[in-house]
Amino acid sequence: MLTKEETHNELFTMGHTGCSGCAQSMAVKLIMEILGKNTIATSATGCLEVFSTRWPESSWKIPWIHSLFENSAAVASGIEAALKVLGKKEDITVLSQAGDGGTADIGLQSLSGMFERNHDVLYVCYDNGAYMNTGYQRSGLTPLDAFTTTSPSGKVSFGNNRPKKYMPEIAMAHRIPYTAVASAGYPMDLQKKVKKAKSIKGAKYLQVDVPCVPGWKYEPKYSVKLAQLAVQTGLYPLFDAEYEKIISVKKISKKVPVEEYLKLQGRFKHLFKDDAGRAEIEKIQKIADENIERFGLI
């Protein structure tokens, strides 16, 4: 039984200024349900930081700190070291958070350092595939052909001309104890992975696909649907790994053509205009098919 009063006691509370339908706030809520109150969190600069801690307001009921864009993992390393000194490390989870830009672009160095030193930190990358907080500019995790404000489609462009950087494999290459990819569309799977990460000592990487209403340009009610379609098309394979070895993948129950996923989003609408666009959709389908093959999703 969850009463109205109890919903006000969530560790990540309502009252934040995230967009209506924000899948990132959904993921944060689900993650905090598992991590519990003995958690200290860092956030990189980005949507989450801005919409959850507009002074004097804060949605956090756990100790939380935002420093800069690129140093979430380094700040978390320092927190972990301090907790060791204080003799509190055994009881407290250190959560380090950033968006895809803060993780795979500007924050990659400090994240790699944290991984290599194997701090007992759970790092979560909320991947919405662009710099949404600054107005939808492309990042290293923007998918192929997505329109962003710095990779616009035009007479001679289909939008972002590079596929997504494969960040989870970069994490795994550090031989950290646990790497997982989850989705806001599959909350139980997400929470299961968080639970597992919480039980493991050392550096953990969790990447969560979080659709973005204004950045992807869709109706707010489709946040979950799109997150699920990303998985069911093969574009966003969900799996987890211990060190370099993948231990489980989320199988696709019914393979969906990528078109079904793309057509719901304004950021891909330029692909549906003509034959050249259709050819681009084929390229995206090929990425999905390769993922299905590589991860054994079917």
């Binding site: 006000h8 509370t13 309502m14 009252g15 934040h16 200024t17 959850s52 801690t53 507009r54 002074w55 004097p56 307001e57 804060s58 949605s59 956090w60 009921k61 756990i62």
Partner: peptide, 15 residues
């Protein structure tokens, strides 16, 4: 001021 906020104070913001 401007740096540290109280836990859960966002509840005052009726979204």
């Amino acid at each position: 001021v401007g740096i540290i906020a109280m836990p859960g104070a966002a509840l005052s913001n009726k979204t």
